[in-house]
């Protein structure tokens, strides 16, 4: 139980850290990383939920959800990076000023 709380709690902590970083750090790349940290937090929490004790097999549904979520997050990150790259290429400067 305590392990589960530790995992879940750190997931929430990651989520909050990500949110904080997303809000206060102007550079877009940091926002993108923040989003990924938030995602990691949510996935962490979900995985912690799957734990049902040492003897019982884990709940497969949250695992599957996390897998799907990761792929979605990767896709979004890839697209956002391409956007950022495009902005950089257009101006040669970083897109941080937005």
């Amino acid at each position: 139980m305590i392990t589960q709380f530790l995992y879940g709690g750190s997931g929430i902590l990651l989520f909050l850290l990500g949110t904080w970083s997303f809000i206060v750090h102007p550079p877009l790349i940091r926002k993108l990383i923040a989003i990924n940290v938030m995602g990691a937090g949510v996935f962490h929490t979900l995985v912690a939920l799957a734990y049902r004790g040492l003897t019982a097999p884990a709940d497969p549904v949250p695992h599957a959800l996390v897998l799907t979520g990761i792929v979605v997050a990767v896709s979004a990150t890839a697209l956002a990076l391409a956007f950022g790259q495009r902005l950089d290429r257009d101006h040669g400067s970083s897109a941080d000023d937005d």
Binding site: P57, P60, V61, H63, A64, L65, L67, T68, V71, V72, V74, S75, A76, A78, L79
Partner: peptide, 24 residues
């Protein structure tokens, strides 16, 4: 079990997820 969920029980989610990848 995880593959069962991904590709059978919740296969529709996975289909959309592949579509998300294509969109990106």
């Amino acid at each position: 079990p995880i593959t069962s969920v991904l590709l059978n029980f919740r296969a529709y989610d996975t289909l959309l997820e592949v579509a998300v990848l294509l969109t990106a």
